[in-house]
Computed example of a mutant assay.
Amino acid sequence: MTAMPAHRHHWDPFEGSVTVMPSAPPRVRRPPFDSGLVQGILVIVAVIALFAAIGLHLFAGTAAALFAVGVFAASFLALFALVLLGDEEGWTRWLLVETARLNGWTPVALDPAGDIVRAGGVDALYDPRSNRARVELAPILRSRLGQMLPLVPTGFYYGAAPGGMPFWMGVEIINVILLAAPRVMRTDPFGNTRLAGRGINFVIGYRLARNTLIEAHLLAETLGDSRRDFDTESIAFNAAFRVTLTGDTAQSRTRLLQVLTPAFMEKLLELERRYRIQVMVRGRHVFLRGYALVNLRDPHLTAPLFAKIVADLAAGAEGFKHYAE
């Protein structure tokens, strides 16, 4: 494996130009095996055994209930052992670094032994840049009715999208077990069907070539939001997004509505259907937060899918600069 350079210079949406020390592969090893699927089976067995113990205690006596309790305890201990032996945290960090290496990006994996701090309403590992991101991007990172899954980044990527547009990406990689799910839920947006995979919770910031002169949030629509935002000509778009502007003046509303052409709104709706996106526009910086299921664990297979996510959302971000041009 080729060693990464000691330092790299990148665009950062919060600090401008930064010097980044990439997370090195020797410090983020590949674990001996991936125990995610086995962990999922043990969790299901433990849950069934727990409810069985309660039912057996009520209707079949103590002896049968004790057997179910034993199954529950054995499953729990086996799960604990797999978490330690499988080094799931190490696997995730290794995947983060390998995906970056294969895509030519710079990875920054947060130290899991670091201090825990509260920023943006959530407890998370301390990192100056990530804490700033959680505070400044809180409207699209925190949980809300339209987007129940909050984002707490455990690593970052710096790189360039197709066409050379620089990007910064905060990512949280989550184990997903889909043993009891129907096939439609076990199939990711890229057509892969598996019983286990990775949930990629992410936010990507792009730097546009021109200032959009727009400061806006496009958040997942929830009950009652329609009374507090303004409507576009698209009923589907209004149902999907709550649109708000900073300093809601007639001029800023006009700028945004000129950008939101029918074709661009359909593009954003397509991204919302695929990635459940929310958007924050801050002048020449556009942030898109979303989620994707990737039912693959080999980084040689997942790296192109990560790159596709970056490319898909870059096309969405660029749509906001048309009015500025």
Rank of each mutant, 00 (worst) to 15 (best):
A65I: 10
A68V: 10
G70P: 10
G70R: 05
G70K: 06
V71N: 06
V71E: 06
F72C: 09
A73V: 14
A74I: 14
A74W: 12
S75H: 08
F76V: 13
F76C: 05
L77S: 10
L79I: 01
L79M: 10
L84T: 04
L84C: 05
G86Q: 09
G86I: 07
D87E: 15
E89M: 10
G90C: 03
G90R: 00
W91A: 08
T92Q: 09
T92F: 02
L95F: 02
L95G: 00
L95N: 00
L95P: 00
V97K: 01
V97C: 01
V97M: 01
T99E: 07
T99S: 08
A100M: 03
R101S: 04
N103L: 15
G104W: 10
W105M: 05
W105Y: 10
W105D: 02
T106Q: 11
T106I: 09
T106C: 14
P107Y: 02
A109H: 00
A109W: 01
A109L: 03
L110P: 06
P112V: 09
P112K: 04
A113Q: 12
G114T: 02
D115T: 12
D115E: 15
D115C: 04
I116V: 13
V117Q: 09
R118N: 12
A119V: 09
A119Q: 04
A119D: 03
G120V: 08
G120F: 09
G121H: 12
D123I: 04
D123R: 15
D127L: 05
D127F: 05
P128T: 08
P128D: 10
P128I: 04
R134I: 05
R134P: 06
V135I: 15
E136L: 15
E136G: 07
L137A: 03
L137D: 04
L137V: 05
L137K: 02
P139C: 12
P139R: 06
P139Y: 10
I140V: 15
R142I: 04
R142W: 01
R142G: 02
S143I: 09
S143M: 11
L145T: 03
L145K: 07
G146D: 03
M148N: 07
L149H: 12
L149D: 14
L149A: 11
P150Y: 12
P150H: 13
P150D: 15
L151A: 00
L151N: 01
V152P: 03
P153S: 14
P153W: 10
G155Q: 01
Y157P: 15
Y157E: 11
Y157L: 08
Y157H: 12
Y158K: 05
Y158M: 07
Y158P: 07
Y158N: 04
Y158F: 15
G159V: 00
P162D: 11
P162S: 12
G163I: 09
G164A: 11
P166T: 14
P166E: 14
W168G: 00
M169V: 03
G170V: 10
G170E: 12
E172A: 13
E172C: 04
E172R: 06
I173V: 11
I174A: 07
I174Q: 14
I174W: 04
I174D: 14
N175D: 15
V176M: 07
V176L: 11
V176E: 08
I177Y: 05
L178N: 08
L179T: 01
